[in-house]
């Protein structure tokens, strides 16, 4: 199967609608992610951020809408998309090492039955190096700190050598070193022309870390370049009255409001 990138949008989702037992979680959400940008998905708890990501990945079936990756359906282009799940989604006491987890990123290109060999392992080692974890390759994963575990997950996505990286709260509960490492990595990915969509919860750092932002609360409130979209007005629309109540200065930027 040949994967194509071309000139189309990296990710284009249209009219995504998804409901759990008739309770809408995503209502008619569009998402356009140009190639080579770092996009944050921001919104309150229960806004459907993770649901949106999982829908993009085909893990959830939407009631309506479709997802295109470089202009073709996600299923055809799956090989172009890498996924970094939330750290809490797996059992870290699983008997495996950091290197082994990263090697799992090569399974997609290996296909059925075939085992990873020396070349897969060296790719995995290189990815571990890229996130500064080469010294921990043989550690059992429960012996890693939260930040280190997050970096292992990032390395696993890197080894997939994808064009698009979908990350679910990569900065959740990590230490300062890891946070710096992830930021550096995001920038390196952008420089390499890759596209990143990340669910993000820390409003303070959105402008610093990302180029574009999608504000989501069941519906898409706003989307576009951070400096255009990440405004007080839009945040109030996204978070309801809650954000406005915190700051209150007349010309406060969103960051001041939340401080």
């Amino acid at each position: 199967m040949r994967l194509r990138t071309g000139n189309a949008l990296a990710v284009q989702a249209t009219d995504l609608t998804l409901a759990y037992q008739q309770r809408p979680v995503l209502w008619d959400v569009d998402l356009e992610v140009p190639r080579g940008v770092l996009m944050a998905i921001v919104g309150p708890n229960g806004a459907g951020k993770t649901t949106l990501l999982r829908t993009l990945l085909g893990l959830l079936r939407p009631a309506a809408g479709e997802v295109l990756v470089f202009g073709r359906s996600y299923l055809e282009q799956r090989g172009l998309v890498a996924y970094v799940p939330q750290r809490g989604s797996v059992d870290w006491d699983f008997p495996t090492t950091a290197l082994d987890v990263v090697t799992m990123g090569t399974y997609g290109s290996l296909g059925w039955v075939k085992r990873p060999g020396a070349s897969e392992r060296s790719r995995a080692t290189a990815a571990l190096e890229q996130v500064g974890m080469q010294d921990y390759a043989d550690r059992q994963i429960s012996q890693l700190s939260g930040g280190q575990q997050q970096r292992v997950f990032l390395a696993r996505a890197l080894v997939q050598d994808a064009e698009i990286y979908l990350m679910d709260e990569p900065f959740q509960g990590v230490d300062a070193t890891t946070e710096r490492a992830i930021v550096d990595l995001l920038r390196a990915l952008r420089t390499a022309g890759k596209t990143v969509v990340a669910v993000h919860h820390d409003l303070q750092t959105v402008a610093e870390y990302f180029d574009q932002v999608t504000l989501l609360n069941v519906r898409r409130i706003a989307a576009g370049p951070v400096d255009e979209v990440f405004t007080e007005e839009n945040l109030r629309l996204t978070y309801g009255g809650r954000v406005a109540g915190i700051g209150g200065r007349a010309n406060a930027t969103p960051l001041d409001m939340l401080a």
Partner: peptide, 11 residues
């Protein structure tokens, strides 16, 4: 056994 969601995204 380790990460079924990730497995699904690999197809």
């Amino acid at each position: 056994s380790f990460d079924p969601d990730f497995a699904a995204t690999l197809g």
